[in-house]
Design a protein around this nucleic acid. Structure first.
Lengths: 225, 225
DNA sequence: TTTTAACCTGACCAAACGGTCAAGATAAAT
DNA sequence: ATTTATCTTGACCGTTTGGTCAGGTTAAAA
């Protein structure tokens, strides 16, 4: 971990200096900010907003604590930045809704994208879970505008499918909540799943099977395919 | 809140004193412990283990902070107590598995019981979510023994149904995780659902409809009924 | 009535907290 | 070569933290 970071820094030191034009300083900044954000995502996931400490973020990012505050004024700024970034990725996972293809294809694509995000970025998902569990104190505005608009537009699409008789008459919100819950469970409750799985993280094969099961149950459950 | 507590205390003061035999002191103890546990459940749900403060628990329980430590030696003791109590209730919700009735009836009963617990005790669910998200540091032993045994025995039952051709060939763990995730989502992400629902908590009717939708999608999804 | 055991609590403490700052190091611009 | 702007960091500060404790009150037992 430590050696990785040091190496990367030195690589850049050598590789970019010749490019001149202040690129080195810019690279240092980018490198450090990324390092801090990545560390913070993990620490916030583990301890929540209040429980996370800047000292621990600094330690995990391999920078002195004062340096964390050089790049980010407060703990809250870091937290908000990660929070919105995670949610933006989720919203983009529903791009499949936009091309008006077969509902089963659209829903499958969305569920699979969501599962993949849980696998690829579990800390971000867990940070979001913390945020909502504690009452969405920082994010209620964002949710009631951006996220709600996004959700409502998908609900309209689903209602269209129902009206056309393409799927069962299911309350669309219930369906979307089920997709949120189930896909994010594989990140948020990953530790619990790991314990049930004889204390081993799900293998690629196991995860792929889980993903396929989730898709199958939900699609069939709403009368698609 | 305050008046409720004071009244209750005085009621007991009058009502039980005549019973004699140290019942009053015992009643005081029980009353205070319950008050503290109820307050702690909420505070832990809101802030997680590290973020929760004994001062806030005390304030919410309407007792001086020192009194919290008179009844419970440490914050951790309170936390563990609530945690296991919540999980025990969940395990009992799967009692329906024991009478060998129709799979659809059993699964419906379990899902409905789980939904009802999310509605009745959201803070407990959120405390558990915190605990797992941060890595199940206090509960991994409990999960890998008691809870795992419980889960595995239900998985056996489901595999039996599959073998008898009563339902689709679904990986039972995927199904159980989906039930965990979806039912607990209504507690853990209750604030998010509330925001989507025009900033109003789900009414009894809305919740009942959600419950029925969850049951329908999952039962049909696994080929039951 | 006296004694005893349980309950109550303001005041306190060492440790940990988020954030600041001055002073030094480094690299870009002049 | 010198100035300027950015990056780095140990030391520090006021506040909050979980937990303690001595000295009090109250109710049960003797």
């Amino acid at each position: 971990m430590t050696s990785f970071k040091t190496d990367a820094k030195q690589d850049r030191h050598v590789g970019i200096k010749s490019a001149g034009n202040g690129a080195h300083k810019a690279a240092i900044r980018q490198e450090n900010e990324e390092q801090i954000l990545a560390a913070a995502e993990q620490v916030f996931a583990d301890y929540g907003f209040k429980g996370a400490t800047t000292a621990r973020i600094a330690e995990m990012a391999n920078v002195p604590k004062a340096n964390v505050h050089y790049y980010f004024s407060t703990k809250e700024v870091i937290y908000r930045r990660i929070m919105e970034d995670v949610c933006d990725h989720w919203l983009q996972a529903a791009m499949t809704f936009d091309n008006s293809a077969d509902p089963a294809v659209i829903l499958r694509g969305y569920i699979e994208a969501k599962m993949d995000l849980s696998r690829a970025r579990p800390y971000g998902s867990r940070l979001w879970a913390h945020e909502i569990i504690r009452g969405a104190k920082f994010s209620s505005d964002y949710i009631s505008t951006t996220v709600k608009d996004w959700l409502d537009s998908r609900v309209v699409v689903i209602k269209g499918w129902i009206a056309e008789g393409k799927m069962d008459d299911i309350e669309p919100y219930s369906l979307m909540y089920m997709i949120f819950a189930t896909t994010q469970h594989y990140a948020d409750f990953g530790r619990q799943i790991e314990i049930f799985n004889d204390n081993r993280p799900l293998s690629e094969e196991q995860f792929a099977e889980a993903k396929e099961n989730v898709v199958r149950i939900i699609l069939k459950g709403v009368g698609l395919r």
